[in-house]
């Protein structure tokens, strides 16, 4: 294991144990939790523009669908978070597929604008269908996440009002999504996506059904967004349509672009950087007497500059899926062994 990898593990371990430190600050735990929510969203969004090369401007729509699904199921049916997560993911995937199937045939620009329109429609729906969502008043009183282990021990019923357990729940979700992403990336599915991103016609002539694989990508991405929304609903315990405006889509897109389109680690890093930057800017701008929304100016500028000077972001897209894949490592060894005698022969000839 090299130094870089150990360093990353060390940081991850430090972050994960931080809430257990007695003097830990609630504010920092809150920011870290928020950053992890965005990590989920950024990883999910990354699939569409990063792996398939399609601009998705309506990602927040699926986040909103997930959040409201969770909120409503909690309020009306008192369902457990652990049941809601897969349900919300399914609901997100369903909408993703419904929207994607007819529109992914079109060129990328049209798709971008359709996703934008969709997310705006979601916000309008959430604002206007007061009977369901209470509209602009918002949806208060969502119960926090619970863990019910009474079947093991009568006393084991936990309700996560505190920041620390929520932190660990979202860390678990980040881990889960990361794991799924890594496995998808290095698989037949991931390779089909790269092929579509690189050259759709060549992908089709390799036997990839482009439309199907784009729809699958979009649906999975939507499902992950919905999972993020699910956690957000139970964590913030309040939802309102304003939380799901285009700005959020833009912010998540900015994270993905900054970290590197098509790179999972990049999405994680982008989320951390922009959440931290957002917190700092909020302070700075308020002290300058400017509205905190103007921080988006910085995000806009970041996007323009990245595209101009470093279009691959901090981490370039995956060139070879799964460099740590044992099959490829094995192949590398075999190739080295095979090339070695040739090199010797060349040296001897020289």
């Amino acid at each position: 294991m090299n130094i870089g990898k150990s360093l990353i593990l060390l940081i991850v371990a430090a972050v994960l144990t931080y809430p257990l430190v007695p003097q830990s600050s609630d504010y920092i735990i809150h920011v870290m939790t928020l950053a992890m929510v965005y990590m989920i969203l950024a990883m999910g969004l990354n699939i569409v523009p990063g792996f398939c090369g399609l601009l998705d401007l309506g990602y927040v729509g699926f986040y909103g669908i997930g959040a409201y699904t969770a909120g409503l199921l909690t309020i009306h049916y008192d369902m457990s978070f652990w049941v809601i997560v897969p349900l919300a993911a399914l609901n997100g995937a369903l909408w993703g597929a419904l929207l994607g199937a007819p529109t992914l045939r079109l060129t990328g620009d049209y798709f971008a604008i359709v996703t934008f329109g969709f997310s705006e429609l979601v916000v309008l729906f959430l604002t206007n269908e007061i009977w369901l969502t209470r509209g602009p008043l918002g949806l208060p009183g969502i119960q926090p996440i619970t863990v019910n282990l009474t079947w093991l021990n009568e006393a084991w019923y936990f309700q996560f009002y505190d920041k620390t357990p929520n932190f660990y729940v979202v860390a678990l979700l980040v881990g889960l999504v990361f794991f799924i992403m890594r496995r998808m990336e290095d698989s037949r599915l991931g390779r089909a996506w790269y092929a579509i991103r690189e050259d759709p016609l060549a992908a089709a002539s390799c036997g990839v059904n482009i439309l199907n694989y784009k729809v699958i990508a979009f649906a999975i991405s939507a499902a992950i967004g919905a999972v993020g929304g699910c956690f957000y609903a139970r964590w913030s315990m309040f939802l309102s349509p304003d939380m799901f405006k285009f700005w959020e889509s833009f912010l998540v897109l900015c994270m993905v672009v900054l970290g590197g389109l098509g790179n999972i680690k990049g999405a994680l890093l982008g989320a951390v950087i922009l959440v931290c930057l957002g917190e700092v800017l909020r302070e700075v701008l308020t002290s300058l007497g400017l509205p905190p929304e103007t921080r988006f100016m910085a995000y806009g500028l970041i996007m323009v500059l990245i595209m101009r000077f470093k279009p691959s972001g901090f981490f370039p897209a995956i060139a070879s899926s799964g460099r740590s894949n044992p099959l490829l490592l094995d192949l590398q060894k075999r190739l080295a062994a095979r090339n070695a005698p040739k090199d010797e022969a060349r040296d001897a000839a020289a």
Binding site: P49, G53, L54, L55, L57, G108, D109, A112, F250, L253, C254, V257, L261, E293, T294, F296, M297, Y299, G300, L301, I302, M303, V304, M307, R308, P311
Partner: peptide, 17 residues
């Protein structure tokens, strides 16, 4: 094209702010 499209979005947000 993706790069140009992202830049266009970025410029829009930038100018608005």
């Amino acid at each position: 094209r993706l790069a140009a499209l992202i830049t266009a979005i970025g410029m829009s947000i930038f100018l608005q702010n």
